[in-house]
């Protein structure tokens, strides 16, 4: 279980995340939706340890993790596929995937190999392109690669930052389906950040609506999906 408690994050003068609290249940998909600049990316970067919060706590499986280094947060079981399909363009597809498992090589070499082949089963297009430079991939393939890289670390919590960004509906559907299968079948906990509220709320169990760095709604996804007035006020549709 991930618990965010009164979390505030600011950049010099901008208060990007303001006293937010919510919980992501184990084995469920929780989605955080909100317009541009709502603070979604800031929230995920703070959970991953890339930014230190100004105040508040983040607790994961009963342990406070705010202020920990990103590389240790991965070791604690939290992996992120960052915004903009971040992969390392100059490395090959296979190297990008292996990168996510390097820290487990010494302790569990056999499982690293298994994890890599699992990600190829999940996304066969990546296997076909494994010795290609990641920079030559399409946007959708990059997103698959970013997710695979996160998955080979065998996370218990997967953070996804706008996986649908700039992708064709068909690809979005494929990626979203894969994520929900992982969640249902393997008990993966997912925190999905999206601007595309319809797609996200359709597969999520729980929804958190963020506006200008504050939580304005925190309710079951179906309920949030049905609430026309909230959506009109904060998402504009």
């Amino acid at each position: 279980m991930l618990q965010i408690n009164n979390l505030s994050v600011s950049y010099d003068s901008v208060q990007a995340v303001n006293q937010i609290s919510f919980t992501a249940q184990k084995g469920r998909i929780t989605t955080v939706i909100g317009a541009n600049g709502a603070g979604k990316t800031t929230l995920l970067r703070t959970i991953s340890g890339l930014i230190a919060p100004k105040s508040g706590t983040i607790s994961w499986s009963g342990r406070e993790i705010q202020g920990m280094r990103p590389e240790n947060i991965v070791r604690a079981g939290i992996a992120q596929a960052p915004e903009g399909h971040s992969v390392i363009a100059e490395l090959t597809v296979e190297e990008n995937i292996r990168m996510g498992a390097l820290f487990r090589l010494r302790t569990n070499r056999a499982d690293v190999r298994a994890a890599i082949s699992e990600s190829y089963e999940l996304f066969p297009r990546l296997e076909e392109r494994k010795s290609q430079k990641a920079g030559t991939l399409s946007g959708g393939e990059r997103q698959m690669l970013a997710i695979s890289r996160a998955l080979v670390s065998r996370p218990e919590l997967l953070l996804l930052d706008e996986p649908s960004l700039g992708l064709a509906p068909l690809i979005v559907e494929q990626i979203i389906d894969t994520v929900s299968i992982l969640c249902r079948e393997k008990g993966l906990t997912v925190l999905l950040v999206e601007q595309n509220a319809n797609t996200a709320l359709a597969i999520a169990d729980h929804g958190v609506l963020l506006a200008l760095g504050k939580v304005v709604a925190d309710m079951p996804a179906a309920q949030l999906r049905a609430d026309e007035s909230l959506r009109a006020a904060y998402l504009g549709y």
Binding site: P70, R75, P82, R98, L102, A150
Partner: peptide
């Protein structure tokens, strides 16, 4: 693998850290 970690850190240290590389 240490060589891969070195290249990854040099190319994009943020993605490298998110991958668990020290």
């Amino acid at each position: 693998s240490v060589g891969l970690a070195m290249r990854a850190s040099a190319l994009n240290s943020e993605v490298a850290r998110l991958s668990g590389i020290r």
